[in-house]
């Protein structure tokens, strides 16, 4: 299946045309549009990003059965990976999640007073869940990795601890989808719900890929650095 994957000679614009969800990925790499006819390689070099890492993310976002090979995984610059993850966290927390909650607040107005209150509460709880989740990564996990990169030893923390803390925030999102599709009153018309549902679907699939990136790639890379340290 390898020949189906994106490659560095392809035009950057063609990647977006093939999978519009990459529109969310570009800003995380701090790449803008106005791509012209530039190839993936050219754009990455211009922005100082590792081409193989960029392609890996795009392939992961686009092809469900894609699993990166060990060699290209070992070549990912950890700084690029963390910068990418940080940028996406900021976007999730500051733009995408608040946008979804704002749109649900409009739906609250169509509901019976008390039902609306319930929905509001659910959203508040969800907001807190997402914030806690990402703050944990920003405040505990990333600084730990950065200290590893500076070759500082940290006896207490291990990346294994992080895996078990990785609560699945997609479960609540899925609940929200079910509630909107199945149980809102008739006053909330399809036209009213559609927008937020599409946002949720997109956010959900984005989070899913984001989780893959953290669970499969980040964790195994960090575990390797830890092993190198322990072996010393």
């Amino acid at each position: 299946m390898k020949h189906y994957l994106f490659s560095e000679k392809m035009k950057m614009a063609d990647l977006i045309l093939a999978n519009y969800q990459l529109l969310y990925v570009l800003p995380y790499f701090e790449i803008g549009l106005r791509l012209g006819e530039s190839s993936v390689k050219q754009v990455c070099e211009k922005h100082g990003i590792s081409v193989s890492f960029f392609l890996m993310v795009c392939n992961l976002y686009t092809f469900d059965d894609y699993t990166p090979d060990a060699l290209s995984m070992s070549q990912i610059p950890m700084e690029d990976l963390i910068k990418y993850l940080r940028n996406s966290h900021t976007d999730y927390l500051e733009t995408r999640m608040p946008k979804i909650i704002d749109k649900i607040m409009h739906l609250v107005d169509c509901c019976h007073l008390k039902n609306g209150e319930m929905l509001k509460k659910f959203c508040e709880k969800y907001r807190k869940e997402v914030i806690t989740h990402f703050n944990y990564e920003e405040e505990k996990v990333f600084p730990y990795i950065e200290s590893l990169l500076k070759k500082e030893k940290n006896a207490k923390y291990r990346i294994k601890n992080y895996e078990s803390n990785h609560s699945n925030i997609n479960v609540s999102l899925n609940d929200l989808k079910n509630i909107i599709i199945k149980y809102l009153p008739a006053e909330c018309t399809v036209e009213n719900c559609r927008d937020v549902l599409i946002d949720i679907f997109l956010f959900e699939s984005d989070l899913y890929k984001h989780t893959l990136l953290e669970d499969r790639i980040l964790i195994s890379l960090v575990a390797r650095i830890e092993n190198m340290f322990d072996g010393q």
Partner: peptide, 10 residues
């Protein structure tokens, strides 16, 4: 299709 306690409450 709902799995969380707060979702079931809603």
């Amino acid at each position: 299709g709902i799995r969380t306690v707060s979702g079931l409450t809603v």
